[in-house]
């Protein structure tokens, strides 16, 4: 089953054309990795799929579970099971982390026609997850991401993901800034989510994460297009050779 299908997507931010014809398919059960040089448009791609404001779709389509993704408001996408783990999770002082988790989970459950969890059930669930993530429980009662360290923010994203159990998870450099143990924890979280009816898109710069979460597909985004796709061996080759050889390739092609 096709979960996400992007066709010739062109996106502008401000005055600048950033995505210049991206085509990408993600099938159920797949883990796909997106790599590419800094500034090549990876976050723009995950952002536009999640409905980030300020990005203007000029042409192209994105179909999610057979529906026009780009026509849905951001919260609708989230409720339909699309989850974005932000590269730079925003701090929201004054909004309690655990309240956000609860509001978010209940919004999704309601959408799916499931009953809302009561406070007790919810807390048990969160406690279990937070242990899995090896996070400090005190982080629950702080403002959302407020004063969190880089690694804590990333873990918090994965905590949310494992609670919300999305159909399509877009992880934007969730591995950056993590220590070795945390990387393992995050990888476990991602692997736990892997299932035949879900899909995961991971944006990453490093092979390390891919050692733990083995991708089915690897795509290279450069200059606003997917310039090369392959299996996990492509990631290994990139690790060895960098991106330059691909750039030459595109120029020739």
């Amino acid at each position: 089953m096709m979960i996400l299908s992007v066709r010739d997507l062109r996106v502008r931010a401000g005055e600048r054309l950033i995505l210049d014809g991206v085509t990408l398919d993600v099938r159920a059960g797949e883990v796909c990795a997106i790599m590419g040089p800094n500034g090549s448009g990876k976050s723009t791609l995950t952002g536009v799929l999640a409905g980030r404001p300020g990005l203007e779709v000029i042409s192209g389509t994105a179909t999610y579970l057979g529906r026009d993704l780009l026509a849905m408001p951001a919260e609708e996408r989230a409720r339909q099971g699309l989850f974005l783990a932000f590269q730079y999770p925003v701090e929201i002082p004054g909004v309690n982390n655990v309240y956000l988790l609860k509001a978010s989970l209940n919004a999704l459950r309601k959408h799916r026609g499931e009953p809302e969890l009561d406070a007790f059930e919810f807390l048990n669930l969160v406690r279990a997850k937070i242990r899995q993530m090896q996070m400090d429980e005190s982080l629950l009662n702080r403002g959302v991401n407020e004063g969190f360290s880089g690694g804590e923010k990333k873990r918090n994203e994965i905590l949310q993901m494992s609670l919300l159990e999305p159909t399509l998870a877009l992880l934007d450099e969730t591995d950056s800034g993590l220590d070795i143990d945390a990387l393992k924890v995050v990888a476990d979280g991602v692997n736990a989510l892997r299932s035949p009816d879900r899909a995961i898109v991971m944006v990453t710069h490093y092979q390390r994460l891919l050692d733990y979460v083995v991708p089915d597909q690897v795509h290279v985004l450069a200059g606003g297009r997917i310039v090369r796709s392959g299996g996990r061996e492509l990631a290994l080759e990139l690790e060895r050779r960098g991106y330059d050889w691909l750039r030459e390739g595109t120029a020739a092609a």
């Binding site: 999640a50 409905g51 980030r52 404001p53 408001p73 951001a74 919260e75 996408r77 989230a78 409720r79 989850f83 974005l84 932000f86 999770p89 925003v90 929201i92 002082p93 004054g94 909004v95 956000l100 509001a103 978010s104 919004a107 999704l108 959408h111 403002g143 959302v144 949310q160 919300l164």
Partner: peptide, 26 residues
């Protein structure tokens, strides 16, 4: 901040109120 909350499935009205309240919390 608003986008973050929407991306977590919150209603736009709820998200706005929540941020407004958070603004006062300080």
């Amino acid at each position: 901040q608003l986008f973050y909350l929407l991306a977590r499935g919150l209603d736009p009205d709820t998200a706005r109120s929540l941020l407004t309240f958070a603004f006062c919390e300080d």
